[in-house]
Every structure is written in C-alpha cells, then in structure tokens.
C-alpha cells in the first residue's frame, strides 16, 4: 500500500460517477440514497447488483475491522512489562529493554577485580568507564559539568550472533561550562565582502 505516494491534500481530479457517489451514500446507510437506488434499479437492475456487492464488501471490511479491534485492544500502555518488552522478535522494544539493562549495569560501581590497570596513567584510571566517572566527578568539583549527566540515549542495537550478546550503541551527553577569554564571529570585511572571523573581547567596564 505504501508503494503509492499521495499527499492528503492532493487535488482529487480522478473521475467519479454520480452513480458511485450514490452507492457510497447508500452503503453508509443514507435512506434517501437507498430509495433513489430502488427507483433507478427498476430500469437499471445492474445498479441493484452493484449495491449488493458494495454491501458485501462492507460486511467483509467490518469483519476485518473486528479482528483489528481485538489487535488494537491488546496494545496496552498501562502494562509496563508488555509495553517495554512484548515482542517475540528483536524489535525496538527488546532493544530498549536490552539497552536499559546494559545502561543499568554500566552505571553500577565496579569491583576491584574488574578494574584493569593502564600502564603509565596511574592507579586512579583503571578503565575507560572509570576514567569517565572520574572525569565527571572532578569536572563537577571544578564547575565544568552542569547538572546531572543525562542517561544514555539508545541509537541502535544488534545481536552479535556469536553468543557473546548484543552490541548497543548509545549517545552520552554532557553539558559543560567553559570560560573563554575571547570569542569569534563571522563578519564581512574589505571591499570583497568575504566572510572572516572577527575577534570579540569581553568588555572590561563590566569587570570594573
């Protein structure tokens, strides 16, 4: 179905006969339209046949609709377990659940046995995760990191296929605060009007 691309607001220039419009109203239960078809049907029995077929389609659609309703009623938001980990396949829900579990593990304090020393960096930096944790802690003390570090955002996941587990790709965001002695803005200079960086220095009168 989606192979066809149509805009909702595209003009509908295709020809539609008055007879089809009458049948649409009749199938929707418009009594006047049904009367009209009965009258016209005396001279044109094919119209009555057509109505019967359209009503048959309506019944089949309604039957599919009942099955679809049952399907929709199974999709429940209030049931957290179902909502976050329902699909038997490796879809988004499973990926999200894996990511949540992984993220939970990643933020657990690691035991000394799990720490791997990196030569030349010193005992304080045992692994990349430890280094990251230490950076956050130190940066907070120095006022470089503002607020809490947002939980990682899941970008994607895939099963590794060799039984080792899943590869989970996440984005970690850190809001940093830095002091810059000067900044630059693009400005047109000279007759050529070429864009060049122009230094902006802080106003000293504010300091006084």
């Amino acid at each position: 179905m989606s192979d066809h691309h149509h805009s909702d607001h595209a003009p509908d220039n295709s020809f539609t006969s008055d007879q089809d419009l009458l049948l649409v109203r009749a199938v929707a239960g418009d009594l006047d339209a049904l009367d009209e078809i009965r009258q016209q049907g005396a001279a044109n029995p094919q119209l009555i046949d057509e109505l019967a077929m359209w009503q048959f389609d309506e019944l089949r659609l309604a039957r599919l609709g009942r099955q679809l309703d049952a399907c929709a009623d199974r999709a429940e938001i209030s049931d957290e377990r179902r909502f976050f980990g329902r699909s038997p396949r490796l879809g988004w829900a499973v990926a999200a659940a894996i990511a949540i579990a992984w993220i939970g593990q990643a933020f657990l304090p690691r035991s000394p046995e799990q720490r791997v020393s990196v030569a030349g960096i010193g005992g304080a930096m045992e692994s990349a995760d430890d280094a990251f944790d230490k950076y956050i802690e130190r940066a907070r003390e120095e006022g470089l990191v503002r607020g809490d570090v947002a939980p990682p955002t899941l970008v994607g996941s895939r099963e590794l296929g060799d039984g080792r587990g899943f590869e989970v790709i996440v984005v970690r965001q850190i809001i940093e605060r830095r002091i810059a002695p000067e900044m630059y803005r693009a400005a047109r200079t000279g007759e050529s009007g070429m864009m060049r960086p122009k230094v902006i220095r802080p106003r000293t009168d504010l300091v006084q």
Partner: peptide, 18 residues
C-alpha cells in the same frame, strides 16, 4: 491503510504508543 500488508500491526501500535 498505510502500512505494507506484511507489516505487523501489533508492533506498529506499540511504536505509536511509545
């Protein structure tokens, strides 16, 4: 109306709910 016939409506409903 918009999904391909082989698409799982259950899964798509979950996506909309999410």
């Amino acid at each position: 109306a918009h999904a391909p016939r082989q698409a799982d409506v259950d899964d798509l409903l979950q996506e909309v709910a999410a």
